[in-house]
């Protein structure tokens, strides 16, 4: 082995350099992905807006894109997404938070160490499975209770989407509660608090930003959810207040169109991108807010 005696720079190390460039190129792929998403969505949405004004799209109350006379008001789809998401949140948030509190504050280490991986497993169940569950179990059960319910209905979709995001909320909120240092709990117990007071007045408020972030992530997941609502809630875009009727979400509409044979370039094809762009913006906004909350919450502990 040659002994290097010089400590002066010996020019560029080409091997090292080319490896670094290679790795940098890989990193570039995720930047390009973002650029591609934005480019494609913007380009096709602009094409769509040359046929339909943005105002008509955003504020129109009838969504009839495939039949004549057509109408491109996205509100019915937004409404469908909204009621399924709100319904899911009403189910999943209280149950998820209570479970997280149970796991982090009350359950024994043994229960926790078995339930936690199971939660992660449940969070990984594909959404098409929840769609199956909605159609073959939830809706029939609902029908025995509420006979007038339709075969496809928003309620069933909301229930299974709620079940779907439940493990995620429980697991992430549990992480947030666990991150609260034990010394805080002890400080509260030392002034004579009960476990209820310690949990609700010290631990949960301290972890609140982490908990809120988990809610937002779960809601964003529910909004972007596709298969369960496509299967359970149907394909009837409307502004109905009733959760017992068939509705259509933004995602379900996209699936419906792509299942048919839509020729590229037409207005019908472009609606896909306009709806997807809206979906993208809404979920992006929620994700950015939840990341912002999380960043703030990290600062508290450092």
């Amino acid at each position: 082995m040659a002994i290097r005696s010089s400590i002066r720079k010996g020019g560029v190390r080409w091997g090292e350099f080319s490896i670094e460039v290679g790795l940098a190129c890989c990193t570039l792929i995720s930047v390009i992905t973002t650029a591609a998403i934005i480019f494609v969505l913007v380009k096709e949405t602009l094409g769509f807006f040359s046929h339909v004004t943005p105002a008509e799209f955003l504020f129109g109350t009838r969504w009839v894109p495939l039949l004549k006379p057509s109408s491109f008001g996205v509100l019915p789809l937004l409404w469908g997404t909204l009621i399924v998401t709100v319904g899911a949140a009403i189910i999943a948030i209280p149950i998820g938070l209570a479970s997280a509190v149970y796991l982090s504050e009350y359950a024994s280490a043994k229960v926790r160490s078995t339930v936690k991986p199971v939660l992660e497993l449940l969070a990984g169940i594909p959404t098409v499975v929840y769609g199956y569950f909605a159609l073959t179990f939830v809706t029939p059960v609902l029908k025995t209770v509420i006979p007038q319910i339709q075969v496809f209905n928003a309620l069933s979709g909301a229930i299974v989407v709620g079940l779907m995001i439940l493990p995620m909320i429980a697991s992430l909120s549990d992480n947030a509660l666990r991150a609260v240092p034990d010394t805080l709990r002890q400080g509260a117990y030392a002034v004579g608090a009960t476990s209820y007071e310690v949990t609700t007045q010290v631990v949960v408020p301290t972890a609140l930003s982490g908990i809120m972030a988990s809610f937002l992530l779960a809601i964003s997941r529910a909004i972007g959810e596709t298969m369960a609502v496509t299967l359970a809630a149907g394909a009837t875009p409307n502004l109905s207040m009733s959760m017992l009727e068939s509705i259509q979400t933004m995602t379900a509409y996209i699936v419906q169109v792509s299942l048919g044979d839509t020729p590229a370039g037409g207005v019908a094809y472009q609606t896909l991108f306009a709806v997807a762009a809206l979906l993208f913006l809404i979920t992006l906004l929620l994700n950015i807010i939840s990341q912002w909350i999380l960043r703030r919450y990290r600062e508290v502990y450092d």
Binding site: S30, G224, L279
Partner: peptide, 27 residues
Amino acid sequence: MVEINIANLAGVPSIVYGIIGLAVFVR
């Protein structure tokens, strides 16, 4: 920026990736 970009990509609904796949790879 790259980090934030990746975190946001992780939150994009899968159906949006499907649409990009349709526009970029398929067509």
